[in-house]
Design a protein around this nucleic acid. Structure first.
Lengths: 251, 251
DNA sequence: CGTCGCTTTGATTTACCTCAACCTTGGTGG
DNA sequence: CCACCAAGGTTGAGGTAAATCAAAGCGACG
């Protein structure tokens, strides 16, 4: 819904679409001429295993990217927002399904031509490379979350990610959560019940204050960061910087 | 980076160092002229947060790639073997620590020059791109494993990955496992005890037969694949192919 | 106003973790 | 050559976080 972009997320691409100055060639500007296509909530843009014919740019809305195990277990490997690119990872088949969460608008670019453009432009290449690296970094964060974090830390990490993404630097950001509890659960490797209980607990602690089912105010951003287990911890607002290695830490 | 890439499905590119034909320019051939450096078991090649000055090629041995949470929890995000590249992922800081598991030999390339070479060569570029994509695919497999698989499925998946990697197509591959149980546990998001118990169970079922602490024979590859929960399931030998889209599929 | 999908809350179960003891292996030195 | 030791690995008993099972609350929409 909101049109801000940038959050290194699996499959995402970063890049701010809205505020492109026009002259400089950016990845997103590539899509400028393409017609906008609309996808209703719950509809798939493509399926895992489909031949990978296009690259997409998210113009508006939100999508989930997921894979499904043979017995139905679903794993959401990422969410996409305006400005993100979709389907860049090549191979000749898509390796995940992409589905619209809200009503979503996309621009499409033929895969081969996309590759050509990238190849041709020495400006675009490093941008794409940087995108992939952000994506890789996000994937690693997610592996850390899934491998070693508790339910509370997972939910807190998720909310924090969203808050930083579209809450900007505000101390008590209002955040929109377009996805359902089931989406969150499948992203965080939990069940809906556990997600729900954890959110309730966060509410009772005064860390968050829900305004509707899909929106809330983060009242204690610093506390949320602490709960997320990311070692930045400062009580007020965290500096986005990835702070590393402090083996021992009070607080 | 290119860390866990190799572990998944050899997409061909950049893999195996040994079988490079010599004339054609390959990513690995770039490192040809560089001197070989040796790292003793347990020593770090670089630390998370270090300024990313070099890209490395693994010539011999095995490494672990990991991150550590503030309270000491460790997550191994990948293992590297001969032919793999390390540190490709840019940013200006390494975002994980790389440590030798066995005595390891590496070749080093200065980061900036590596970038230049890549930029210059229209042959190398797609190779690097393919590498990153393999890596991304592997990261996603790992997310699926961590988010939704049981302990048994995790261990089975891990053994299967190794078996396919260095066991070739044999039906009862002999596999070497250079890492300790703790490494496996931190890679699979489990504890050593659970890994140990699970391996014992697999042994009792006749699926594997340990020959030493760090080597074993996989006696029932098909069964292992089934236990790994990867939907290939066939009772005999699985076709390495990634089977996809089972949304609706009798199997 | 009733129905349907999503969410919350509660009671119970369970897979995995934790704690603790013991066993194996490989290296070292007497 | 064997006794000893330390590090890594296995096995067992018990605890717990999260899953599962079950029931109700809450909106939105026809």
């Amino acid at each position: 819904m909101l049109s801000q972009a940038t959050m290194s997320q699996p499959h995402g691409a970063v890049r701010r679409f809205a505020t492109v100055p026009s002259q400089p060639v950016s990845l997103n500007s590539l899509f400028g001429g393409q017609p906008v296509e609309t996808f209703e909530p719950g509809t798939a843009v493509f399926w895992e295993g489909d031949e990978a014919r296009h690259v997409f740019e998210v113009v508006e809305g939100a999508l989930r990217i997921f894979r499904i195990l043979s017995d139905g277990r679903r794993v959401i490997t990422g969410f996409l927002y305006p400005g993100d690119l979709l389907g860049v990872s090549l191979k000749d088949q898509y390796l995940y399904t992409a589905e619209a969460i809200t009503r979503t608008k996309l621009r499409r670019y033929e895969h081969g031509r996309f590759q050509e453009e990238i190849n041709r432009s020495p400006e675009l290449r490093p941008q794409l490379f940087a995108c992939l690296c952000d994506e890789m970094a996000a994937a690693q964060d997610q592996m850390v979350l899934l491998a070693r974090k508790s339910a509370e830390e997972r939910v807190a990490s998720f909310l924090l990610l969203i808050a930083r993404r579209l809450g900007g630097d505000e101390r008590q950001p209002v955040i929109e959560i377009p996805m359902t509890r089931l989406d969150m659960a499948d992203y965080l490797g939990l069940t809906i019940e556990t997600v729900s209980r954890t959110m309730t607990r966060l509410t009772n602690c005064g860390v968050i204050a829900p305004s509707s089912r899909h929106a809330m105010v983060v009242r204690k951003l610093g506390k949320l960061a602490m709960l997320a287990g990311e070692a930045d911890a400062g009580d007020k607002d965290a500096l986005g910087g990835r702070s590393i290695q402090q083996a021992v830490w009070p607080n």
